[in-house]
Every structure is written in structure tokens, then in C-alpha cells.
Design a binder for these strands. Structure first.
Lengths: 140, 140
DNA sequence: TTCTCTGCAAACGCTTTGCACGGAT
DNA sequence: ATCCGTGCAAAGCGTTTGCAGAGAA
């Protein structure tokens, strides 16, 4: 787990060869405290504390983080990207009723894909959609 | 398997409560003969035989097919949607080298998702990315 | 100085929307 | 007469690009 302070995030970024500028630290901090926010959400929150911040800078930071493999983008339902600091393999479930996105673990390693024999698999994404328990109980 | 003639597609559309207009039949025909084409590709091919066809009509048809659940959109890599007549559960592998998208079967039913106990799952998508066998062999 | 980061404005690409025309019922 | 499908043009939206200025090394 990453230390959420400015210093903690700063050294975390340095470890990954990213110069810890203030906007980058802020973006990273928001990624840590929210679960898969959109660029818009990150911008909206960060701009409160950095009035001159531009959306371009948020995108710059996010794209840099993805290059360095410390952030992952997810596309579920909308065309708008969500960003996830958890780069381990896990699935995303989107409730079509409340729009909440849930994480869950999947073991795709276990599955063999005979059709993909000899392929090199770098990235795995599992997206499920449906209705979450809370919404199902509400509508009863 | 659907009969690829104009009549065959026409009755298939009727079965799904879709009025079989000529543009719709043409779009469906292209979906049947290509594997997950983009809207652009469908338009480019269809316009050859229907010079007055507009892209809007292609989108109208595709969106209608998706509403009626006979076509599925897939988003892998690009923001551009690909469309798939195969609505059964299967995975998509995108080769980052040649950009080809391969289908493969997955058995997600078998997997239990303890975190999603009590959830209703309507749709399942598995996206893998990496390098396909052909590209790996080429680069050796 | 040189290199990098920031941030405005504009461009981009895919998709949707508004709206009017034409054909079917 | 009403309804539905088509297709043009324009708008929409998230994201990227061009570029100039500020700041760090």
C-alpha cells in the first residue's frame, strides 16, 4: 500500500522514474483515494486546490502513469475512460442500475485458451455488466 | 447459422421485430461476412452498392440491432467500436502487433465470483491483448 | 542555457442529434 | 393523414496536439 502523503507519493513516483511535480502528486493522490475515477472527476477535485490546473495536465499525468504501468485504464459501458491504480489482474462489474463499478478477483491464469496456444498474453480484462445486489434488493 | 441471402436476412430481422429495409439488410449482410467490422468499414463496403447511403443510417441500423440484442459492440484498444453478430459469450484477443482481433471461447460460468454473490450478471466480456502466434514467429 | 512541465486554444475522430424529405401503411 | 426510415449538416464529447511561456537543473 502506498503512503498517501505528498512525500509518500513523491517517492513512489520517483521509484517509477517519474518526476514528482505537484500536479502529478495530486492526480496520484486522487487515484488512491477514489476507485476508478474519470479524468473529469480527477480534474474537478484537483482544480479545487490548484485553480490554474488544466485538464491537459491531468491527461498528461494519466498517460505518463499508464506508460510507466502504474495506472490502468478501464472502459466499461461508456466511452469515457476510468483510471485504476490497481494494475493487478481483476475484473470489473458495472451495475447498469446504479452505475457503480465493483472490483472482483478472477483467475484467468487457470483457464486455458486452446485457441490462443502460442500467443503471448500481456493484458487481461474481464468486464461484467448486470445488476448489483443492492439494486436487486431495492427493487423487490 | 443465418441464411446470407436478402430473403434469409429479411426473415431473420422480422423474427426480431425489425422491419427489413434494404440498408438494414445490407448492414446485417456485412456483419455476417466480416468478423467484427467497424461502422466505417460497414459503411465503406455498403456504400459501393448503395451510393446514397449515409453513415447515420449505418449507425441507426447498428444501434437498433444492439437494442434487439442481435449484435454486440466490442471496444478493444481503440475508441472506435467494432460490431459482432456473435452474441454468445466468447473472448476477444487483440494482437498489438498486427491489430487483428481473434475470437476464442471462455467458460466464465465455471468461475465463481464470491465477491459478486447475489449479483445478476447479464453480460460478460473478456478482452486480452498481446502478440499473436503469427507475429511472434515472424519476429524470430 | 537547455530541458521539461504546464496550460490555453484548437483540432480530432467517432458518434449522436436535429430536422426535413419521401415512402409506406 | 400518420408513421417510420433515411440522410444531410451540425453538434457533442472525451481526448490529443500545437505551441508558447514558466520553471527547474
Amino acid at each position: 500500500m502506498i503512503d498517501c502523503t505528498v512525500e509518500g507519493i513523491g517517492s513512489y513516483l520517483l521509484e517509477h522514474n517519474i518526476k514528482p511535480s505537484y500536479p502529478r502528486i495530486k492526480v496520484m493522490q486522487i487515484l488512491l483515494q477514489r476507485t476508478h475515477p474519470t479524468a473529469e472527476e480527477i480534474y474537478a477535485q484537483a482544480v479545487k486546490e490548484m485553480p490554474t490546473l488544466s485538464k491537459t495536465t491531468v491527461y498528461n499525468a494519466l498517460n505518463l502513469f499508464m506508460e510507466k504501468n502504474i495506472v490502468h485504464s478501464i472502459y466499461i459501458g461508456e466511452t469515457e475512460a476510468k483510471y485504476d491504480i490497481d494494475t493487478s489482474i481483476h475484473g470489473h462489474f458495472k451495475c447498469e442500475c446504479c452505475n457503480k463499478v465493483y472490483d472482483f478477483s478472477v483467475d484467468l491464469e487457470e483457464q486455458s485458451f486452446p485457441e490462443l496456444h502460442g500467443f503471448f498474453i500481456r493484458e487481461r480484462d474481464v468486464y461484467l455488466k448486470g445488476t448489483c445486489k443492492a439494486c436487486l434488493e431495492k427493487s423487490e
